[in-house]
Design a protein around this nucleic acid. Structure first.
Lengths: 124, 124
DNA sequence: ACCTACAGGTACCAAAAGGTGCGTAATTGA
DNA sequence: TCAATTACGCACCTTTTGGTACCTGTAGGT
C-alpha cells in the first residue's frame, strides 16, 4: 500500500485524489466525456465529433477512462466489429462538471484572446 | 488571421475555444486557480500550498495564466522582492468551475480507485 | 561571517504525450 | 474485384512537459 490517503485533498500530492485530477486534466478526456453525455456513441462517431483527435489518442483515452470506471465499453461481438461507449453513472456526474468547463471555454475564449493581445502590445 | 472562428465550439479544433480549454487542462492550472480563490498569495505561499509543484512549473504556469488575463501579478518593487498574485474577475469565474472539479476529485477518487482494482482483477 | 528567504532565470536532461503509417479480418457496395 | 468501413494493436518518430541543479542580489537573523 503505497499511496492510500483518506484525506481527500487535491493539494496533497500523495493523495490519490491527485491521480483523479490528472486523469481529468487531459485535453481529450475533457471532450470525450461531455460528448458521451448525449448518449452512447461508437468510436467512429466520436472520431468525427471531436475534431482533431487521432484514432490512437481516442482509443487510448477511452481505455484509460474505462479502466477508471467512467466509461463503459460494450462490444456487440459482431463482425465487422460494433462497439459502443457510454458513460457510467460516475462518468455522468463528472461529465456534468466538464460540460460546465467546456461551456466556460466557449463563452470566454474571446476575453482570453483579447488579454493575450493586450499582453503582447504591452511588451512591444 | 489564422485561427479566428466565432462559432465558439470546443469540438472544432480551429476554434480558439480549444486553445482556452488546453490552457485550462493543465494539472497545475487546476490547482493554482482554486488556490488563489481564497485571496491573493505570494509565490512562496503557493509553493507550500500546492504539494509537489516545482518552482519552475509554478512560475511557468503563473506566467501563462497572466498572459491570458486570468491572474494578475502585482510587483511591490521592493527589495527583497515582494510579489502577489491574484485572480482577475475572469480568472475568478473560471476558478469557480475548477473548484467544482477539484471537489469532484476529492469526493469520488475512492470510486475511481475501486474501479481500477476491479479492472485489474478482471484481467487476472 | 554565514545562512535563509525572497522571486525568479537558465541550462541540461529524462519522461510522457501524441502523430503517422501499417496490419488484422470480414462485410457491404461499386 | 477493388475499395471502404468497422475497431483496433503495434512500431517508429517528434514534440512537449517537467524535473534538477545552479545562478542572480538583497535584507534580516544567529
Amino acid at each position: 500500500m503505497a499511496k492510500t490517503q483518506k484525506s481527500g485533498d487535491v493539494y496533497d500530492p500523495s493523495c490519490s485524489a491527485r491521480d483523479a485530477l490528472e486523469l481529468i486534466a487531459s485535453k481529450w478526456a475533457m471532450l470525450i466525456l461531455p460528448a458521451l453525455a448525449d448518449g452512447p456513441m461508437r468510436s467512429g462517431a466520436l472520431l468525427r465529433r471531436i475534431g482533431g483527435v487521432s484514432q490512437k489518442m481516442l482509443t487510448q483515452t477511452l481505455r484509460e477512462l474505462e479502466k477508471n470506471g467512467l466509461v463503459i465499453r460494450q462490444d456487440m461481438q459482431t463482425v465487422p466489429p460494433h462497439v459502443e461507449y457510454r458513460l457510467s453513472p460516475l462518468g455522468a456526474s463528472l461529465s456534468d462538471v466538464l460540460v460546465a468547463l467546456d461551456r466556460w471555454a466557449e463563452l470566454h475564449f474571446p476575453e482570453l484572446d483579447a488579454a493575450r493581445e493586450r499582453f503582447l502590445r504591452r511588451r512591444s
